[in-house]
Design a protein around this nucleic acid. Structure first.
Length: 201
DNA sequence: GTGCGGATGAACT
DNA sequence: GTTCATCCGCACT
């Protein structure tokens, strides 16, 4: 199973890229522990004109600057003071695009993930939802701005892909502040998968 | 320096 | 359906 090549992340259509990430495998290797799973839910955040994006209007700060880098890096930030959210930076340098990973079907290191989440047994909420999967994978801000070609956090192609009929597009979650852009159908998920985050269908 | 609110999740009623 | 945990990032003074 090979890591996605840098060229994958350099695609300029972030929505197409968000769809293509479904079925890929996200892994972390932290303190000698390997964890990972199949990406089953994503959201695209598109450039300075996307009102839901942290980079809307060209906002460039210590937090958002990694979004302006060339694709192939992690963008991880703390949300609500509690949850770390993991994004993939995509596209070309200077254009702030990213894909938020919102749902993961656990595959590797189940025991480690259960321990990190303080759960006795597998339930779908182990990795359904962006905050939940980040915690299960041990993702925090120490992994921000990491090269996805490295050996701490990466995405691999295991040969699985979904047909257009298996992929649903819908409005993004938790972006009411974005006004009319909150309705853009830039959230993608695998139809019927148990590890898609709750505000489902 | 201060104040406000968030790309959520879990535990409630 | 409602509440609340919890803290940095960001805009403004």
């Amino acid at each position: 199973m090979r890591k996605l090549p840098l060229s994958f992340y350099h695609q300029e259509d972030v929505n197409q890229l968000a769809r293509q990430l479904l079925g890929k495998r996200l892994y972390t290797w932290i303190d000698g522990e390997l964890t990972g799973g199949i990406i089953v839910e994503t959201e695209a955040y598109n450039g300075i004109t996307d009102k839901a994006s942290h980079a809307y209007g060209g906002r460039f700060t210590d937090r958002t600057k990694v979004m302006y880098e060339s694709g192939g890096l992690s963008y991880i930030y703390l949300c609500y003071g509690i949850h770390h959210l993991f994004n993939v930076v995509t596209g070309v340098e200077g254009i702030p695009q990213a894909v938020l990973i919102r749902g993961l079907e656990p595959i590797e290191g189940l025991d480690v993930m259960l321990r990190r989440r303080n759960m006795p047994a597998l339930k779908t909420n182990l990795t359904a939802g962006p905050g939940a999967l980040a915690k299960a994978l041990g993702i925090d801000r120490a992994l921000n701005a990491k090269d996805l070609m490295g050996d701490e956090i990466w995405i691999a192609d295991a040969g699985l892909s979904y047909t257009p009929e298996e992929i649903v597009a819908s409005a993004r979650i938790g972006v009411d502040y974005a006004g009319d852009h909150a309705l853009l159908p830039w959230r993608y998920y695998v139809k019927g998968n148990r590890f898609v985050s709750k505000p489902n269908t």
